[in-house]
Amino acid sequence: MNDTPILRTENLTYIYQKGTSSEVAALQDVSVEIRQGELVGVIGHTGSGKSTLIEHFNALKKGTAGRVLLDGNDIWADKSKIRAVRFRVGVCFQYPEYQLFEETVAKDIAFGPRNMGLPQDEIDRRVKEALTNVGLSEDYAEKSPFDLSGGEKRRVAIAGIMAMEPQVLVLDEPCAGLDPRGRATVLQMIADYRQKTGCTVLLVTHSMEEVAAIADRILVMNQSRVAFFDTVDNVFAHAEELQTMGLDIPQMTQLMLSLREKGYDVPVNLYTVQQVYDTIFARWKGGVHGAQ
């Protein structure tokens, strides 16, 4: 059923230290629908509630009000099945390399599948596939995760979540702290994985550029509420509002905004150098021709 959203929240609210004088709302009345198979970028600055939201998706936190529905079912309906929810919504937290603990890469990736109680041959298959998904050769399987470089550790940790074959893969800042090449590799890897498996992916990030490059839709969180949830183009059309929320809009979008301030009628929902190049080139040629 493609029409039922895979993940849905209904008026989800979460309040820290409820009932005390230091009550802080981390989520207020959040109702979103994540469709089967889409790649959603989740954006917002620190404290906007985006991290709290994803902790609700796999039941690490329980809302003080509202519901989270996975495939139409309330995830808290049966408390004994909470672990099953975590296998279906796989969350990879920030700096996941710090969760590695096994002697070998293969064993570490197998931790999730083993907790699921899968048979050994299935676990082996998944470990192999997860390694391929993150672009690491089979030589890595028997290495110690602690001997790898930072970027490789990151990929092994992500593979550990992929090996659970979740229906929804949530990645919290998977590129944090990596260099440009590392960032590009991880983003490409996520895009490929989604292409190959058709899995629903949520990508939490600070970087608009990252999201613009691979997401179908963007969920913008601001002050514990949903500010926008729309296609990349439509969200970037609100570039000025995004800026007032303290978000870093892509440089190319900034350029378009500044041209618009100067009185040019240009679209502001452009974010790659190529897009802007095309637009400006056309305008410039058009102008040159017009003047001739």
């Binding site: 350029l255 500044s258 041209l259 100067k262 009185g263 040019y264 009628d265 400006i280 305008r283 410039w284 058009g286 102008g287 017009g290 003047a291």
Partner: peptide, 18 residues
Amino acid sequence: ELSLQLEALLPRSAGRVE
């Protein structure tokens, strides 16, 4: 800097020129 240079490059209103 780029925005300033583009101002010199681009016609004020594409519509009007056309």
